[in-house]
Design a protein around this nucleic acid. Structure first.
Lengths: 195, 195
DNA sequence: GCGCTAATTGGACTACAGTCCGGTTATGCC
DNA sequence: GGCATAACCGGACTGTAGTCCAATTAGCGC
């Protein structure tokens, strides 16, 4: 019999089972008590799994949050790489301008982060610099840099835009000004960088 | 005999003495071992003081870092409020434009943060949202907002500029691109907001 | 100088993140 | 199916941030 392999490092059946149980338990606890106030001990207990297993599989609390977000993060990344315009590259004969794509990215990214604000915040602020270490940041940065190609300093400007989209920043600023104004400001910033 | 009082809540002599000893010990340990790897226990021990005292006086590690920065933070704030142009308001007959002042603020703030990057980073990232809770952030935000008066949304744009000047962000981006490019990008952003 | 009162002190205590390693179990080969 | 091996498991352990309260001590009016 031929079995499908998703990737070279094969995951043992019990490990896969535990991973699923842990993620489900974590999601339930987070939903019920809020991301901040759930301890890793509690998650391990709820999943019927030892602490060592938790940390072995997910590294730390940020890694657990990242794993929970993985699905939707990939969806956004696929839409950016292969999806319809203006977020994606679209068809060759009707390609969106970089400025249009940057606006679309800003909107879509805000949708994503604001929908999962607590989880993203946890994944970005669990330890100082965490945001810049996870692979996702590199993806967003590369995408924005490419859209800014040819301007003064695409890489530096991309970092600046992403700074305004950091989860901890959004958390504080949305509480202060409301989502609408923050979104408009981010879009103005995106426009300014492509002007 | 007339004694000078700095403020209504009078500080007891022993408390003042301990505060000074603690700050000196913390500064020494930070200088020697780096901000990250010094524990509050170590600071208390080095200062010959109990842990309770440390937390009572400074709240947490971020508060301790803030106290150490207090001197220089005040100096910058004074220069902004009362100093010479273009950072300060200057003389009535030769006032700088808001755009000039915003560039000057960006430069001066970067000087300040980059000089004390580890301490500022600790004060901003000790706990999620810490940056937005300390009074200093409100000061910078108000200042930038005032300089942007009359434009689309001064408060939202001020938050966006300050996001690019966050210590954790600067730490990561300076490591990636170097100080010069980051500074130029921040200045371009300041210019864009006043255009 | 002297006692009254309230702030201050400091170390024992809790809770949590993250590490470690002896025992267990799945997997692949024969 | 049976066995060798490598990966996995889980709970005991460590180090640290932050809390709490009984004992102390400074400031103040007399």
């Amino acid at each position: 019999m031929l079995t499908l392999r998703t990737s070279p490092p094969k995951e043992r059946a019990d490990a896969a089972r535990n991973r699923a149980v842990v993620l489900a338990a974590a999601a339930a606890l987070f939903r019920e008590h809020g991301v901040e106030s759930v301890s890793m001990d509690a998650i391990a207990a709820a999943a019927g799994v030892g602490k060592g297993t938790l940390f072995r599989r997910f590294g730390d609390k940020a890694g657990l949050a990242t794993a929970l977000l993985d699905q939707q993060e990939r969806a956004l990344q696929e839409a950016i790489l292969f999806g319809a315009a203006p977020l994606g590259p679209g068809e060759p004969d009707a390609a969106p301008t970089p400025a249009e794509r940057l606006r679309a990215f800003t909107n879509a990214y805000l949708d994503y982060v604001l929908t999962h604000l607590d989880l993203v915040r946890m994944s970005e602020t669990a330890s100082p610099g965490a945001r810049y270490r996870i692979g996702a940041y590199r993806f967003w940065h590369r995408h924005v840099s490419l859209l800014l190609a040819g301007r003064s300093d695409p890489e530096a400007d991309a970092h600046a835009l992403l700074a305004a989209l950091a989860a901890d920043h959004l958390h504080a600023v949305v509480a202060d000004l409301g989502e609408a104004r923050v979104r408009q400001a981010a879009l103005r910033l995106a426009d300014a960088l492509t002007t």
